Structure formats: structure tokens, C-alpha cells
Computed example of a mutant assay.
Amino acid sequence: MPPVMPLAILCQTASFIKSASKVDQCPEDIGLEVAFAGRSNAGKSSALNTLTHARLARTSKTPGRTQLINFFALDEHRRLVDLPGYGYAKVPLELKEHWKQHLDAYLTGRQSLAGVVLVMDIRHPLSPFDCMMLDWANTAGLPVHILLSKADKLSFGAAKGELLKVQNRVRREFGNRATVQLFSSPKRMGVEEAHGVLQQWLFPEESAEEPAPQE
């Protein structure tokens, strides 16, 4: 049996599958997928594009443009999912309620969903919307990996300090199900660390077979 392509290579070959405005329009619920979520203007689309070395997600200076659940194939059995940006004030209330209803259905009912990458602007982390997403994931029993994006906007010391504060609060309120790291799309900071998490979620059997580090 040929070896599985490294995740970094798979990411470079990612391709668009389809968009869905409702859960019943999603691709067949088989295999494994990782969803990217985040408050509008947190840098979610930029993070997804940086991690895949591709222009998968549409970036815009106007927050709230991602209004559909967008699916991208890594291979026949693995997908990345770009969820609608949430929390943007200028999005009509009716559309917000539609997103909330179908995001809830997606996060709590999607069997192939292996984890959620939650992107937060390091300067404004853990907004009420971020915490709502963490609660959703916790209810669904899903692991969450938080990318503190735009880390290049702060000094190294300030970014590290913010990382520790977020880690402590997340651990206190959500336990060990959520992990946190620094990330910057322009500087490509944290790409390997994020790839490592995706590797564990999308290739769980291989990750389980890796030898434990020596003490």
C-alpha cells in the first residue's frame, strides 16, 4: 500500500467541492473533515489560504462575505470546511439567525467533523461569539484548536503574554478539549504547528501509531 501523502502536500492540492446554505446541502457525511470558524475580520480566510498554500477561501476587506458553508477536498476521504464568519454587525438579523440555526445543526450533527479550527484576532480574543462557538463544540464533543491570528501585530513579548492569558482561560472554562497557538498569515508564523493538529485529526490512525517521545 503506497504511503499517504504528507498533509502539507495534500493541502497544496486542495480543491473546491461545493457550497451549502443548509446542512442538507452538504456533501455526503463520510470520511473526515475539519471546519474553520471565526468572527468576521479575524483572519479566518487568510489562515485557511496560508495553511493550504492556495487561494481557496475568498478574502475581502468587507467582513461577513463568507455566507455559505464551503467544502474543499484534500483527497477522497478528507475535507476542509470554511464556515460563515459570525458576529458582524452589518449582516442582516434574518441572515444571522439562518447562520446560527444551520451552524448549530452542522456542528452538533455532522458525523465526519473531526475538529474545529477557531480563528481569533489576538488583539480581541474570546469574544462572546468565540465562546459560543467553544460551547457548541464542547456540547458536540469536538476538539478545538485556536489560532490567535495577526500575532505579527504585537511585539513578541505581548503576543506571548496574550497566548498565556487565553490558554489559562480556555483551560479553566473548557478543559483540555481546546488548544491555543500564535498564528500570522503574512509571516507564516505557526503553520507547522497548525499542520500538526490537522494531521492528528485527519489521520488519527497514523497519529496513534507514532512513538511517544522519550523522556
Rank of each mutant, 00 (worst) to 15 (best):
E162T: 02
L182C: 12
R123F: 07
T179N: 09
A178Y: 03
A89T: 13
F183C: 04
A158M: 13
A89M: 15
P84M: 05
S112V: 07
R110P: 04
C131L: 10
V191D: 14
H124K: 01
N70R: 06
V144G: 01
K96G: 01
S207A: 15
K160V: 10
P128L: 12
G115M: 01
G141W: 03
E193T: 12
L142P: 02
D82L: 03
V144K: 02
L142N: 08
A140R: 08
P211F: 14
C131I: 02
Q167D: 15
I69P: 07
G161T: 09
Q200M: 03
G109F: 00
I122H: 09
D152N: 08
P143W: 03
G85F: 06
R188I: 07
L118G: 08
F72T: 00
Q200Y: 01
V116P: 03
L107P: 02
S185E: 08
H102F: 15
R172W: 14
N168I: 08
L68E: 14
H145R: 09
D135S: 09
K160M: 11
V117I: 08
D121S: 06
L164E: 15
F129I: 08
A89G: 13
L95R: 08
R123T: 02
L164S: 14
W136K: 00
R188P: 01
K90I: 11
Q199D: 15
L113Y: 06
L103M: 14
F183D: 06
F71T: 02
H98M: 07
F72I: 06
F203S: 06
G141A: 04
G161K: 09
N70F: 02
L68M: 11
P204A: 10
L148K: 04
M133A: 07
G190Q: 11
E162N: 00
V119H: 06
S207R: 04
I69W: 00
R171S: 15
D152P: 04
G175C: 12
L95D: 09
G85K: 03
M133C: 06
G196F: 03
G87S: 11
R172P: 04
